[in-house]
Design a protein around this nucleic acid. Sequence first.
DNA 1: ATTTAATCTTGACAGTGATAAGATTGCGTG
DNA 2: CACGCAATCTTATCACTGTCAAGATTAAAT
Lengths: 188, 188
Amino acid sequence: MTERTYHHGNLRQELMEKGLQYVERYGVESLSMRKLAESSGVSSAAPYAHFKNKEDFLKAVQEYITEQFSEILKKTAERCGNGPRLLLELGKSYVLFFSENPTYYRFLFTRGTPDIRDYEPFMIFSSAVCTQPTGGAAGEDAEESRAKTLALWSVVHGLAQIATIPGALDPEHLEEEIERILNAVTIK
Amino acid sequence: MTERTYHHGNLRQELMEKGLQYVERYGVESLSMRKLAESSGVSSAAPYAHFKNKEDFLKAVQEYITEQFSEILKKTAERCGNGPRLLLELGKSYVLFFSENPTYYRFLFTRGTPDIRDYEPFMIFSSAVCTQPTGGAAGEDAEESRAKTLALWSVVHGLAQIATIPGALDPEHLEEEIERILNAVTIK
DNA sequence: ATTTAATCTTGACAGTGATAAGATTGCGTG
DNA sequence: CACGCAATCTTATCACTGTCAAGATTAAAT
Protein backbone atom coordinates (compact mmCIF):
# COMPACT_ATOMS: atom_id res chain seq x y z
CA MET A 1 0.00 0.00 0.00
CA THR A 2 2.11 2.85 1.27
CA GLU A 3 5.29 3.12 -0.76
CA ARG A 4 8.02 2.69 1.78
CA THR A 5 10.95 4.98 2.21
CA TYR A 6 14.39 3.67 2.99
CA HIS A 7 13.58 3.85 6.65
CA HIS A 8 10.57 1.79 7.56
CA GLY A 9 9.68 4.00 10.48
CA ASN A 10 7.84 1.45 12.56
CA LEU A 11 9.66 -1.80 12.00
CA ARG A 12 10.07 -2.95 15.56
CA GLN A 13 6.37 -2.65 16.24
CA GLU A 14 5.34 -4.23 12.97
CA LEU A 15 7.66 -7.18 13.45
CA MET A 16 6.18 -7.89 16.84
CA GLU A 17 2.63 -7.72 15.52
CA LYS A 18 3.42 -9.93 12.56
CA GLY A 19 5.22 -12.30 14.90
CA LEU A 20 2.24 -12.45 17.19
CA GLN A 21 -0.09 -13.24 14.31
CA TYR A 22 2.26 -15.86 12.99
CA VAL A 23 2.54 -17.62 16.33
CA GLU A 24 -1.22 -17.52 16.68
CA ARG A 25 -1.77 -19.17 13.32
CA TYR A 26 1.14 -21.50 12.83
CA GLY A 27 2.96 -21.77 16.15
CA VAL A 28 6.51 -20.76 17.04
CA GLU A 29 8.23 -23.73 15.48
CA SER A 30 8.21 -22.55 11.90
CA LEU A 31 8.58 -18.86 12.60
CA SER A 32 11.64 -17.34 11.00
CA MET A 33 13.09 -13.89 11.19
CA ARG A 34 13.56 -13.87 7.44
CA LYS A 35 9.93 -14.57 6.63
CA LEU A 36 8.89 -11.93 9.10
CA ALA A 37 11.28 -9.45 7.56
CA GLU A 38 10.03 -10.20 4.08
CA SER A 39 6.40 -9.90 5.12
CA SER A 40 7.25 -6.44 6.38
CA GLY A 41 8.90 -5.62 3.08
CA VAL A 42 12.32 -5.30 4.53
CA SER A 43 15.66 -7.04 4.05
CA SER A 44 16.52 -10.13 6.05
CA ALA A 45 19.08 -8.35 8.19
CA ALA A 46 16.93 -5.38 9.08
CA PRO A 47 15.33 -6.93 12.18
CA TYR A 48 18.71 -7.17 13.82
CA ALA A 49 18.80 -3.41 14.18
CA HIS A 50 15.95 -3.78 16.65
CA PHE A 51 16.60 -7.13 18.26
CA LYS A 52 19.89 -8.62 19.31
CA ASN A 53 18.89 -12.03 17.99
CA LYS A 54 15.90 -14.28 17.44
CA GLU A 55 15.74 -15.29 21.08
CA ASP A 56 15.65 -11.64 22.04
CA PHE A 57 12.81 -11.02 19.62
CA LEU A 58 10.78 -13.96 20.87
CA LYS A 59 11.24 -12.80 24.44
CA ALA A 60 9.84 -9.42 23.49
CA VAL A 61 6.76 -10.98 21.92
CA GLN A 62 6.45 -13.24 24.91
CA GLU A 63 6.41 -10.28 27.26
CA TYR A 64 3.90 -8.55 25.05
CA ILE A 65 1.49 -11.47 25.30
CA THR A 66 2.11 -11.82 29.01
CA GLU A 67 1.12 -8.19 29.49
CA GLN A 68 -2.18 -8.72 27.73
CA PHE A 69 -2.72 -11.82 29.80
CA SER A 70 -1.94 -10.03 33.06
CA GLU A 71 -4.31 -7.27 32.07
CA ILE A 72 -7.15 -9.75 31.77
CA LEU A 73 -6.39 -11.29 35.14
CA LYS A 74 -6.20 -7.90 36.80
CA LYS A 75 -9.56 -6.93 35.41
CA THR A 76 -11.05 -10.12 36.74
CA ALA A 77 -9.52 -9.51 40.15
CA GLU A 78 -10.93 -6.02 40.17
CA ARG A 79 -14.36 -7.20 39.13
CA CYS A 80 -14.47 -9.74 41.95
CA GLY A 81 -12.95 -7.64 44.71
CA ASN A 82 -12.47 -9.85 47.69
CA GLY A 83 -15.67 -11.70 47.03
CA PRO A 84 -16.03 -15.44 47.52
CA ARG A 85 -15.73 -16.13 43.80
CA LEU A 86 -12.42 -14.36 43.37
CA LEU A 87 -10.24 -17.44 43.12
CA LEU A 88 -12.68 -19.33 40.96
CA GLU A 89 -13.08 -16.47 38.52
CA LEU A 90 -9.33 -15.90 38.34
CA GLY A 91 -8.93 -19.55 37.50
CA LYS A 92 -11.59 -19.37 34.85
CA SER A 93 -10.01 -16.35 33.21
CA TYR A 94 -6.67 -18.07 33.25
CA VAL A 95 -7.90 -21.25 31.66
CA LEU A 96 -10.17 -19.52 29.16
CA PHE A 97 -7.36 -17.35 27.90
CA PHE A 98 -5.32 -20.32 26.81
CA SER A 99 -8.31 -22.26 25.68
CA GLU A 100 -8.96 -19.45 23.21
CA ASN A 101 -5.30 -19.09 22.25
CA PRO A 102 -3.77 -22.54 22.49
CA THR A 103 -0.68 -21.61 20.55
CA TYR A 104 0.10 -18.93 23.12
CA TYR A 105 0.45 -21.55 25.80
CA ARG A 106 3.07 -23.44 23.90
CA PHE A 107 4.80 -20.24 23.01
CA LEU A 108 4.89 -18.85 26.53
CA PHE A 109 5.74 -21.91 28.55
CA THR A 110 7.66 -23.90 26.06
CA ARG A 111 10.60 -21.65 25.66
CA GLY A 112 11.85 -21.93 29.23
CA THR A 113 9.20 -21.82 31.91
CA PRO A 114 9.17 -18.33 33.40
CA ASP A 115 10.36 -18.12 36.97
CA ILE A 116 7.09 -17.81 38.79
CA ARG A 117 8.77 -15.94 41.62
CA ASP A 118 8.64 -12.80 39.56
CA TYR A 119 5.95 -13.73 37.10
CA GLU A 120 3.09 -11.28 37.26
CA PRO A 121 0.19 -13.69 36.64
CA PHE A 122 1.48 -15.80 39.47
CA MET A 123 1.75 -12.75 41.71
CA ILE A 124 -1.87 -11.98 41.07
CA PHE A 125 -2.85 -15.42 42.28
CA SER A 126 -0.52 -15.14 45.19
CA SER A 127 -2.03 -11.96 46.52
CA ALA A 128 -5.52 -13.24 45.82
CA VAL A 129 -4.87 -16.24 48.04
CA CYS A 130 -3.69 -13.98 50.83
CA THR A 131 -6.81 -11.82 50.85
CA GLN A 132 -8.98 -14.89 51.01
CA PRO A 133 -10.35 -16.15 54.33
CA THR A 134 -9.50 -19.76 53.71
CA GLY A 135 -10.96 -21.04 56.91
CA GLY A 136 -7.54 -21.62 58.41
CA ALA A 137 -6.61 -19.72 61.54
CA ALA A 138 -5.31 -16.22 61.03
CA GLY A 139 -1.91 -17.16 62.34
CA GLU A 140 -0.81 -19.28 59.42
CA ASP A 141 2.87 -19.39 58.73
CA ALA A 142 4.55 -18.42 55.49
CA GLU A 143 5.17 -22.02 54.48
CA GLU A 144 1.50 -22.84 54.61
CA SER A 145 0.32 -19.95 52.51
CA ARG A 146 3.15 -20.57 50.11
CA ALA A 147 2.04 -24.17 49.73
CA LYS A 148 -1.50 -23.02 49.15
CA THR A 149 -0.53 -20.58 46.46
CA LEU A 150 1.64 -23.08 44.66
CA ALA A 151 -1.10 -25.66 44.87
CA LEU A 152 -3.73 -23.31 43.53
CA TRP A 153 -1.58 -22.10 40.70
CA SER A 154 -0.68 -25.68 39.84
CA VAL A 155 -4.28 -26.70 39.36
CA VAL A 156 -5.17 -23.72 37.31
CA HIS A 157 -2.09 -23.80 35.17
CA GLY A 158 -2.27 -27.53 34.67
CA LEU A 159 -5.89 -27.27 33.65
CA ALA A 160 -4.95 -24.52 31.22
CA GLN A 161 -2.63 -26.94 29.55
CA ILE A 162 -5.41 -29.47 29.23
CA ALA A 163 -7.63 -26.78 27.78
CA THR A 164 -4.99 -26.45 25.12
CA ILE A 165 -5.60 -29.93 23.76
CA PRO A 166 -8.23 -29.83 21.02
CA GLY A 167 -11.33 -31.63 22.19
CA ALA A 168 -10.07 -32.46 25.66
CA LEU A 169 -12.69 -30.18 27.19
CA ASP A 170 -16.17 -29.89 25.78
CA PRO A 171 -16.20 -26.60 23.87
CA GLU A 172 -19.98 -26.42 24.08
CA HIS A 173 -20.00 -26.19 27.86
CA LEU A 174 -16.51 -24.93 28.44
CA GLU A 175 -17.13 -22.53 31.28
CA GLU A 176 -19.31 -24.97 33.16
CA GLU A 177 -16.75 -27.69 32.84
CA ILE A 178 -13.89 -25.49 33.99
CA GLU A 179 -15.95 -24.40 36.93
CA ARG A 180 -16.86 -27.96 37.81
CA ILE A 181 -13.25 -29.06 37.71
CA LEU A 182 -11.96 -26.14 39.72
CA ASN A 183 -14.76 -26.64 42.21
CA ALA A 184 -13.70 -30.23 42.66
CA VAL A 185 -10.58 -28.86 44.27
CA THR A 186 -10.39 -27.48 47.76
CA ILE A 187 -7.25 -25.79 48.92
CA LYS A 188 -6.93 -26.77 52.53
CA MET B 1 36.74 -47.63 19.69
CA THR B 2 35.39 -50.40 17.50
CA GLU B 3 36.36 -49.89 13.89
CA ARG B 4 33.08 -49.62 12.10
CA THR B 5 32.07 -51.49 9.03
CA TYR B 6 30.06 -49.87 6.27
CA HIS B 7 26.91 -50.87 8.06
CA HIS B 8 26.72 -49.50 11.54
CA GLY B 9 24.57 -52.32 12.79
CA ASN B 10 22.84 -50.52 15.60
CA LEU B 11 22.34 -47.01 14.37
CA ARG B 12 18.71 -46.53 15.23
CA GLN B 13 19.28 -47.48 18.83
CA GLU B 14 22.45 -45.44 19.16
CA LEU B 15 20.85 -42.35 17.69
CA MET B 16 18.05 -42.53 20.20
CA GLU B 17 20.42 -42.94 23.11
CA LYS B 18 22.63 -40.10 21.94
CA GLY B 19 19.54 -37.99 21.40
CA LEU B 20 18.32 -38.74 24.88
CA GLN B 21 21.65 -37.74 26.38
CA TYR B 22 21.76 -34.61 24.31
CA VAL B 23 18.29 -33.51 25.35
CA GLU B 24 19.16 -34.22 28.95
CA ARG B 25 22.26 -32.03 28.85
CA TYR B 26 21.47 -29.27 26.43
CA GLY B 27 17.74 -29.38 25.73
CA VAL B 28 15.94 -30.02 22.46
CA GLU B 29 16.44 -26.60 20.97
CA SER B 30 19.97 -27.06 19.74
CA LEU B 31 19.71 -30.72 18.87
CA SER B 32 20.45 -31.43 15.24
CA MET B 33 20.31 -34.61 13.25
CA ARG B 34 23.67 -33.85 11.73
CA LYS B 35 25.48 -33.51 15.02
CA LEU B 36 23.87 -36.71 16.22
CA ALA B 37 24.91 -38.48 13.04
CA GLU B 38 28.46 -37.25 13.37
CA SER B 39 28.68 -38.25 17.01
CA SER B 40 27.71 -41.73 15.91
CA GLY B 41 30.39 -41.65 13.26
CA VAL B 42 27.99 -41.76 10.40
CA SER B 43 27.14 -39.52 7.48
CA SER B 44 24.54 -36.79 7.83
CA ALA B 45 21.97 -38.56 5.70
CA ALA B 46 22.27 -41.93 7.40
CA PRO B 47 19.64 -41.27 10.07
CA TYR B 48 16.99 -40.91 7.41
CA ALA B 49 17.17 -44.60 6.72
CA HIS B 50 15.68 -45.10 10.18
CA PHE B 51 13.50 -42.07 10.69
CA LYS B 52 11.27 -40.34 8.19
CA ASN B 53 12.37 -36.94 9.41
CA LYS B 54 13.51 -35.07 12.50
CA GLU B 55 10.01 -34.81 13.88
CA ASP B 56 9.63 -38.54 13.54
CA PHE B 57 12.89 -39.10 15.39
CA LEU B 58 11.94 -36.76 18.22
CA LYS B 59 8.62 -38.52 18.60
CA ALA B 60 10.42 -41.82 18.98
CA VAL B 61 12.66 -40.43 21.72
CA GLN B 62 9.62 -38.84 23.33
CA GLU B 63 7.87 -42.18 23.46
CA TYR B 64 10.98 -43.79 24.84
CA ILE B 65 11.11 -41.35 27.73
CA THR B 66 7.39 -41.64 28.31
CA GLU B 67 7.77 -45.39 28.65
CA GLN B 68 10.41 -45.02 31.35
CA PHE B 69 8.20 -42.49 33.05
CA SER B 70 5.17 -44.75 32.94
CA GLU B 71 7.25 -47.57 34.32
CA ILE B 72 8.09 -45.51 37.39
CA LEU B 73 4.48 -44.57 37.95
CA LYS B 74 3.35 -48.14 37.59
CA LYS B 75 5.87 -49.30 40.15
CA THR B 76 4.66 -46.68 42.57
CA ALA B 77 1.07 -47.72 42.02
CA GLU B 78 2.00 -51.32 42.66
CA ARG B 79 3.91 -50.46 45.79
CA CYS B 80 0.95 -48.56 47.24
CA GLY B 81 -1.78 -50.92 46.22
CA ASN B 82 -5.09 -49.31 47.07
CA GLY B 83 -3.67 -47.84 50.25
CA PRO B 84 -4.55 -44.36 51.44
CA ARG B 85 -1.26 -42.91 50.22
CA LEU B 86 -1.67 -44.07 46.62
CA LEU B 87 -2.60 -40.72 45.11
CA LEU B 88 -0.06 -38.80 47.14
CA GLU B 89 2.76 -41.16 46.22
CA LEU B 90 1.81 -41.14 42.57
CA GLY B 91 1.93 -37.37 42.65
CA LYS B 92 5.31 -37.41 44.33
CA SER B 93 6.75 -39.80 41.78
CA TYR B 94 5.38 -37.66 38.99
CA VAL B 95 6.82 -34.42 40.31
CA LEU B 96 10.14 -35.94 41.35
CA PHE B 97 10.72 -37.41 37.92
CA PHE B 98 10.65 -34.02 36.27
CA SER B 99 12.41 -32.35 39.13
CA GLU B 100 15.31 -34.69 38.46
CA ASN B 101 15.09 -34.32 34.68
CA PRO B 102 13.87 -30.80 34.00
CA THR B 103 14.82 -30.90 30.36
CA TYR B 104 12.55 -33.88 29.87
CA TYR B 105 9.55 -31.80 30.84
CA ARG B 106 10.23 -29.24 28.18
CA PHE B 107 10.95 -31.92 25.69
CA LEU B 108 7.83 -33.94 26.35
CA PHE B 109 5.24 -31.23 26.73
CA THR B 110 6.68 -28.56 24.59
CA ARG B 111 6.40 -30.25 21.28
CA GLY B 112 2.65 -30.51 21.23
CA THR B 113 0.99 -31.50 24.48
CA PRO B 114 0.10 -35.17 24.26
CA ASP B 115 -3.60 -35.90 24.18
CA ILE B 116 -4.21 -37.03 27.73
CA ARG B 117 -7.12 -39.16 26.62
CA ASP B 118 -4.73 -41.82 25.49
CA TYR B 119 -1.67 -40.83 27.46
CA GLU B 120 -0.56 -43.64 29.72
CA PRO B 121 0.63 -41.60 32.72
CA PHE B 122 -2.75 -39.92 32.75
CA MET B 123 -4.50 -43.26 32.56
CA ILE B 124 -2.62 -44.41 35.61
CA PHE B 125 -3.91 -41.45 37.54
CA SER B 126 -7.34 -41.97 36.18
CA SER B 127 -7.67 -45.53 37.36
CA ALA B 128 -6.06 -44.64 40.68
CA VAL B 129 -8.76 -42.08 41.30
CA CYS B 130 -11.43 -44.65 40.59
CA THR B 131 -10.13 -47.19 43.08
CA GLN B 132 -10.00 -44.55 45.75
CA PRO B 133 -12.81 -44.19 48.28
CA THR B 134 -13.03 -40.45 48.01
CA GLY B 135 -15.74 -40.06 50.58
CA GLY B 136 -18.31 -39.32 47.93
CA ALA B 137 -21.25 -41.63 47.60
CA ALA B 138 -20.68 -44.76 45.58
CA GLY B 139 -23.16 -43.65 42.97
CA GLU B 140 -21.13 -40.83 41.48
CA ASP B 141 -21.69 -40.08 37.85
CA ALA B 142 -19.07 -40.11 35.15
CA GLU B 143 -18.86 -36.34 34.97
CA GLU B 144 -17.92 -36.09 38.59
CA SER B 145 -15.15 -38.64 38.51
CA ARG B 146 -13.91 -37.16 35.27
CA ALA B 147 -13.72 -33.75 36.90
CA LYS B 148 -11.85 -35.24 39.82
CA THR B 149 -9.32 -36.94 37.65
CA LEU B 150 -8.69 -33.86 35.58
CA ALA B 151 -8.35 -31.77 38.71
CA LEU B 152 -5.91 -34.17 40.30
CA TRP B 153 -3.79 -34.48 37.22
CA SER B 154 -3.77 -30.72 36.83
CA VAL B 155 -2.32 -30.14 40.26
CA VAL B 156 0.33 -32.76 39.90
CA HIS B 157 1.30 -31.82 36.40
CA GLY B 158 1.30 -28.13 37.16
CA LEU B 159 3.47 -28.71 40.19
CA ALA B 160 5.82 -30.76 38.06
CA GLN B 161 6.30 -27.75 35.87
CA ILE B 162 7.14 -25.64 38.88
CA ALA B 163 9.60 -28.27 40.00
CA THR B 164 11.25 -27.68 36.68
CA ILE B 165 12.24 -24.13 37.54
CA PRO B 166 15.66 -24.08 39.18
CA GLY B 167 15.34 -23.01 42.78
CA ALA B 168 11.57 -22.70 42.78
CA LEU B 169 11.30 -25.58 45.22
CA ASP B 170 13.78 -26.11 48.01
CA PRO B 171 16.04 -28.94 46.82
CA GLU B 172 17.11 -29.67 50.40
CA HIS B 173 13.61 -30.64 51.48
CA LEU B 174 12.12 -31.46 48.13
CA GLU B 175 10.00 -34.44 49.09
CA GLU B 176 8.59 -32.75 52.16
CA GLU B 177 7.68 -29.69 50.20
CA ILE B 178 5.99 -31.63 47.43
CA GLU B 179 4.07 -33.56 50.03
CA ARG B 180 3.04 -30.40 51.83
CA ILE B 181 1.80 -28.81 48.63
CA LEU B 182 -0.07 -31.84 47.45
CA ASN B 183 -1.57 -32.25 50.89
CA ALA B 184 -2.84 -28.70 50.74
CA VAL B 185 -5.17 -29.92 48.03
CA THR B 186 -8.29 -31.92 48.59
CA ILE B 187 -10.14 -33.34 45.67
CA LYS B 188 -13.75 -33.09 46.64
C1' DA C 1 25.54 -68.08 -5.85
C1' DT C 2 22.58 -64.77 -7.10
C1' DT C 3 19.20 -61.61 -6.15
C1' DT C 4 16.96 -58.44 -3.14
C1' DA C 5 16.39 -55.15 0.26
C1' DA C 6 18.41 -52.60 3.91
C1' DT C 7 21.71 -49.50 5.03
C1' DC C 8 25.14 -46.03 4.34
C1' DT C 9 27.91 -42.18 1.49
C1' DT C 10 28.34 -38.42 -1.53
C1' DG C 11 26.77 -34.37 -3.22
C1' DA C 12 23.52 -31.34 -3.67
C1' DC C 13 19.50 -27.79 -2.55
C1' DA C 14 16.85 -24.37 -0.18
C1' DG C 15 16.15 -22.21 4.10
C1' DT C 16 17.96 -20.53 8.49
C1' DG C 17 20.34 -17.12 12.08
C1' DA C 18 23.77 -13.99 12.12
C1' DT C 19 27.51 -10.54 11.01
C1' DA C 20 30.40 -7.09 8.64
C1' DA C 21 30.68 -3.25 5.53
C1' DG C 22 28.58 0.16 3.41
C1' DA C 23 24.31 3.07 1.82
C1' DT C 24 20.60 6.18 3.26
C1' DT C 25 18.41 9.39 5.99
C1' DG C 26 16.18 11.50 10.20
C1' DC C 27 17.52 14.62 13.81
C1' DG C 28 19.87 17.60 16.90
C1' DT C 29 23.56 20.93 17.32
C1' DG C 30 26.12 24.63 15.71
C1' DC D 1 20.05 26.52 7.47
C1' DA D 2 24.07 23.40 7.00
C1' DC D 3 26.62 19.84 9.02
C1' DG D 4 27.52 15.61 11.08
C1' DC D 5 26.26 11.95 14.05
C1' DA D 6 23.70 7.96 14.96
C1' DA D 7 19.95 5.13 13.79
C1' DT D 8 18.28 2.34 10.38
C1' DC D 9 18.33 -0.40 6.28
C1' DT D 10 20.70 -3.20 2.19
C1' DT D 11 23.94 -6.27 0.22
C1' DA D 12 26.89 -9.93 0.52
C1' DT D 13 28.43 -13.56 2.90
C1' DC D 14 29.16 -17.37 6.42
C1' DA D 15 28.27 -21.59 8.83
C1' DC D 16 24.72 -24.51 9.79
C1' DT D 17 20.42 -26.96 9.26
C1' DG D 18 16.83 -30.62 7.30
C1' DT D 19 16.24 -33.35 3.50
C1' DC D 20 16.51 -35.76 -0.89
C1' DA D 21 18.30 -38.30 -5.05
C1' DA D 22 21.67 -41.30 -6.85
C1' DG D 23 24.74 -44.56 -6.21
C1' DA D 24 27.95 -47.75 -3.21
C1' DT D 25 28.18 -51.48 0.05
C1' DT D 26 26.72 -55.37 2.40
C1' DA D 27 23.58 -58.45 5.14
C1' DA D 28 19.99 -61.68 4.40
C1' DA D 29 16.93 -64.42 1.84
C1' DT D 30 16.20 -67.41 -1.95
